[in-house]
Design a protein around this nucleic acid. Structure first.
Length: 283
DNA sequence: CGTTACCTGAAA
DNA sequence: TTTCAGGTAACG
């Protein structure tokens, strides 16, 4: 479900709703235990009970709750995880797995149909940097930095952009959108991009992500913000989920192919496969 | 490097 | 009934 813009949207909502609150307890369902990946609920509770949430940050697609003892509660929503802040007496609703109880009677509730999401306590959140590439919206994400991440890679550009160690926060939707904006075919071998193409891609990544944030995220299935509201970026997408619809630039029907095992949307006219080999719009 | 597994619901 | 799903880690 969530890529950088969706996680950022949730982060902003959570910052508004729960910053400064203390965690007074936890509710964990049997299906929710998997969240902790083997850490006993009691051990997790011992780390968070009584702690004040001083800040909510984001790194890539991770949500980081800075606690008042210096520890960090790290959550990843994977495909279908949701965080919503609700009154403690509201119904749990579908896919409810766990909740952190707050000192004002509300709860930070976790719902996750597919149960891929994870919760952890981390004493050294900087360790995430070893596994994650640069933040694409930060100053230090330069054209050179992107060029370095792509250099020598033979994998399709789309696969490289989805690799969180190269650039953090991009997922299937925004990669397709960025490649379309940059007029680059998703199957182009990453290392073959010209300097001009890398520069276009660099700008396109930021445009696609900024737009997603400005529209409060893209809701295709399960994404909702911290208050249960849907994002409105879906109607602004240029290619993702628009198979068969005319390209806004040239009118050619948007194609859907598979790249790196992922459904991939592109305009075969605006994004010709001219980098190597022969044109291949279909497939 | 590509493929599979992890789960389960929703859509085709 | 079958296919697909916005993510990632673990395979071979």
């Amino acid at each position: 479900m969530p890529e950088l813009p969706e996680v950022e949207t949730i982060r902003r909502g959570l910052a508004e709703a729960v910053r400064g609150r203390r965690i007074v307890g936890i509710r964990m369902t049997p299906a929710g235990e998997r969240l902790l990946r083997g850490v006993p609920t009691e051990a997790f509770l011992a780390r968070v009970r009584g702690r004040r949430i001083d800040d909510i940050r984001r790194r890539g697609k991770y949500l980081l709750f800075a606690l008042d003892d210096g520890a960090t509660f790290v959550a990843h929503l994977r495909m279908t995880g949701r965080f919503e802040v609700e009154p403690g007496d509201a119904p749990d609703g579908p896919f409810f797995r766990a909740a952190l109880q707050l000192d004002d009677g509300r709860e930070l509730r976790w719902r996750d149909a597919r149960r891929f999401g994870t919760w952890a306590i981390c004493d050294e959140p900087a360790a995430l940097d070893a596994r994650l590439g640069p933040e694409p919206l930060d100053e230090d994400f330069t054209i050179d930095r992107l060029a370095g991440a792509l250099a020598g890679r033979r994998a399709p550009i789309k696969a490289v952009l989805l690799d969180q160690r190269r650039v953090a926060g991009l997922g299937n939707i925004y990669v397709d959108e960025a490649l379309h904006l940059a007029r680059i075919h998703p199957r182009r071998s990453a290392g073959t991009l010209t300097r001009d193409e890398v520069a276009r891609l660099h700008a396109a990544i930021r445009i696609a992500l900024d737009k997603g944030i400005a529209n409060f995220g893209t809701t295709f299935r399960s994404f909702v913000n911290a208050f249960g509201g849907e994002g409105r970026n879906r109607e602004h997408l240029l290619v993702y989920g628009r198979r068969g619809e005319p390209c806004a630039s040239c009118g050619t029907p948007i194609a859907r192919i598979v790249v790196g095992g992922r459904g991939t949307h592109l305009c075969p006219t605006c994004q010709p496969f001219d980098g190597e080999g022969d044109a291949d719009a279909g497939r």
